[in-house]
Design a protein around this nucleic acid. Structure first.
Length: 135
DNA sequence: GCCAACGTTGGC
DNA sequence: GCCAACGTTGGC
């Protein structure tokens, strides 16, 4: 089981859109590191859903329902995609400011590679953020 | 709306 | 193969 963080702009495709659809395809990724992360995902992996540009916070958790498929928006066949289903909305969103203020989260890919749209999250980081989302 | 950071492209 | 130019992303 691995953990991830996926960014989306809420005015383009937000958490509420994913909940409304029931299942969403994570496609349109055109970055090699993000693609590597996408291709490493397995069915059952969990991912934070992060709102970028507006909101700047983790709002929910989704699970990978289909892994290792080609990107339907790509004709060349070299880009990857996965499908995800919403699992739970966080009791309290975890903001970027809160993540930056937490020393244990300072080394997250999210912080170090701010433009990466699909980030890996370590189990330790996952636990810390989940704890922050409850209290 | 601006700007910094980063990835990609293309000329040499 | 290097590097400058450009485009895109995302935080502020």
């Amino acid at each position: 089981m691995a953990y991830w963080l996926m960014k989306s702009e809420p005015f383009k495709y937000g958490w509420d859109d994913l909940v409304a659809e029931g299942e969403g395809t994570w496609d349109g990724v055109r970055n090699y590191l993000a693609r590597n992360n996408l291709m490493a995902m397995q069915v059952g992996d969990e991912a934070f859903f992060y709102h970028s540009r507006e909101g700047l916070e983790i709002v929910g958790i989704c699970t990978v329902s289909v892994a290792g498929i080609g990107d339907p928006t790509d004709e060349s066949g070299k880009w990857a995609a996965v499908k995800v289903k919403p699992k739970a909305k966080l009791a309290r969103p975890v903001t970027l400011a809160a993540i930056k203020a937490e020393p244990r989260l300072a080394d997250m890919q999210l912080i170090r590679l701010s433009r990466l749209s699909v980030c890996a999250v370590t189990p330790e980081e996952w636990q810390v953020i989940c704890a922050m989302a409850k209290s």
